[in-house]
Write a protein that binds this DNA or RNA. Structure first.
Lengths: 100, 100
DNA sequence: CTATTATTTGGCTATATTACCAAATATATA
DNA sequence: TATATATTTGGTAATATAGCCAAATAATAG
């Protein structure tokens, strides 16, 4: 397998891995219903603020969510709603395809 | 969140997590092309026999692949081909939905 | 039965992940 | 400015993961 193919596999795996944790998957499914601030997610998840924040950072780094700071709150939204339709969309997440 | 909802999230996360490793994702994509024995996958992956075997066991436990021993060889196949269309199919993987 | 091939399992080490607490930062309000 | 709220960052300990080697199993060939 060449470097490029390997890089694509790695990127896809990273996205999948980011979704492969109960808390993060829960967050993604919650965000599928609309944007949420960190504080709302903290309440829903029931974990420490810092824990939720780190999960969100990881999801952001994977390209799954994006944040928007308004005032003192940070609102997160699903960057790729199609992630709920999924494998079809992994290519789009990593920018090598389109999301239908 | 009640226990049942949590169990569903956990199961989905387990599937996603199983796919969230480059080697395992590679294996899944290779199996999408047809069944392969462990020895073939070992050659393709380029890792130790035991390493590949463990990845396969993990994928099997996640419900993503199934094995079939014929003679001295064990052939693996994708249990849910729709995993390549994906999120749509996660429900099917854990038996709570259908795969189109 | 012995040797060979295919695969899994056990053991071990290095690395990564997760979660919490405490501290730092940023913004808004009194 | 002092204070409160929202969030992130740093530190740390417990747990989980990944990969290799060696040994155990299973099936086949001779």
């Amino acid at each position: 397998m060449d470097d490029k193919a390997q890089a694509i596999i790695d990127a896809k795996a990273k996205v999948l891995k980011s979704l492969g944790h109960p808390t993060r998957l829960f967050i993604v499914e919650e965000l599928a219903r609309g944007e949420r601030c960190v504080c709302e997610l903290v309440k829903l998840v029931g974990a420490d603020f810092s824990t939720v924040s780190k999960h969100l950072t990881l999801l952001k780094n994977a390209g799954v969510v994006q944040d928007d700071k308004r005032g003192q709150m940070v609102y997160y939204t699903l960057k790729v709603p199609c992630i709920l339709r999924f494998m079809d969309c992994i290519e789009a997440v990593i920018g090598t395809g389109s999301c239908r």
